[in-house]
Design a protein around this nucleic acid. Sequence first.
DNA 1: AATTCTATTGTTAGAAT
DNA 2: AATTCTAACAATAGAAT
Lengths: 159, 159
Amino acid sequence: MARLSKGRKKVEIVKMKNESNMQVTFSKRRVGLFKKASELCTLCGAEIAIMGLPPLNDDDCHNHLIRAHRNTGQRGLNKEVMDMQESLRKEKAIGKSLLESGRGAYDRVCESPIIEGLSLSQLEQLKKALESQKRKVEFEAELQQMGSDAPLPFCHLWK
Amino acid sequence: MARLSKGRKKVEIVKMKNESNMQVTFSKRRVGLFKKASELCTLCGAEIAIMGLPPLNDDDCHNHLIRAHRNTGQRGLNKEVMDMQESLRKEKAIGKSLLESGRGAYDRVCESPIIEGLSLSQLEQLKKALESQKRKVEFEAELQQMGSDAPLPFCHLWK
DNA sequence: AATTCTATTGTTAGAAT
DNA sequence: AATTCTAACAATAGAAT
């Protein structure tokens, strides 16, 4: 179809309201940020790590990972990271039955009789909870890999 | 004086040879990178941390901090950070007599009879060693502060 | 959710402070 | 070593795939 765009427009740097546009912007700007970091490393021999934390949402009221981050106080990064890993270990144990076999188990749960009788809103909540859990497990995997064999700049950004 | 610049020229993304130009480029691009990270955080509600490690130079042959980073293997970030802090503690102890009182002590050492009788090249080496030590102590201070009360994005880039 | 297209806004190299 | 100025480069918003 014919492109009707007049091209880029100036945007104010405030939190975007439209979630859909926000996701597109996040994708694009993440690529741009990593490119900038990579260029700075190459040009100047610097070593840069970029990391993002999972966003806090309504389903994360028991999210120890996030709470550990927000309450670090004077403890320093090492304690913070250990807290995060400990919290993740606990959360993982809780969600083990749903996630122990990866995507296969996720699918089986979604298709099982367990979810019969749940309201639409309850299904929505279950879905969000599972997605939240998946993010945590993926994040843990990233933490484990950090510093292992990744060429610099190490980059991880979450969304 | 009249500006003779024809304006920006395209640069190849390879390590810069001219140390002076490299420092200028580092300064400018660091500002740009932080701005990009900050905008991404604000626009998309993301939480980003950017961190840089001190560069490895000829005076860092005993630099435990860097070695810890380069040899992290499968140990993960928490171990890495602890190693770095432990190494820094040791290095700090070694350099304590020179740095315990901050800049004042640094000046006193440079002006003291201790350095009499040193060759120019030896003085150069001492200067570099002290600068390297200063960077490590400053970095340790940054590590201690991380996660305490810094508004996101947390940004630290070294040079 | 990541990518493409392109008009437009944003970043920065070089020279100098 | 960080900043300023400005003419080039480069990144990206919006629309669409």
